[in-house]
Amino acid sequence: MKFLLLSIFLLLGAPAFAAEDVYQFENDEQRDRFSELTYELRCPKCQNQNIADSNAPIAEDLRKEVSRLIKEGQDNETVVQFMVDRYGEFVLYEPRFNVKTFIIWLVPAILIFIGLIVILSVSRSRKQAHETKELNSQESERLALLLVNSNDEVGDK
């Protein structure tokens, strides 16, 4: 169990340290921001990797830029905007909420809403099916008759 936990934690930690050792920073705060930013920014060439993970030359250039901007004292937003200005919003792993992207942000909420409606309507129709209806006088007479008849048949045999 300990071994399992240890290996899980090691796996969780690995990507964050992927590209860090190459760059020297003045303090831990800068280093943390560097790994955070390179983890969030997507490599334009190798599209399913972030720039921390990729060893494509373009990812290396972008890492260099991120470290340069951090050392210049730029805040995270400025660094991200710098990349977006050049490579477009594609580089953001977490897209911003705007006219182009509103649908991907809203779809989960809409789907949950539809799901709730479906669940409610299904459970309501089930409830209706289970409700016992009162028999009117004609029906109860017929039922009694049927019961008597079936008893007779059983008695005959």
Partner: peptide, 12 residues
Amino acid sequence: NGRLGLDLGVYG
């Protein structure tokens, strides 16, 4: 050093 390329958003 690819400085202009970076400003242009060149990725290949």
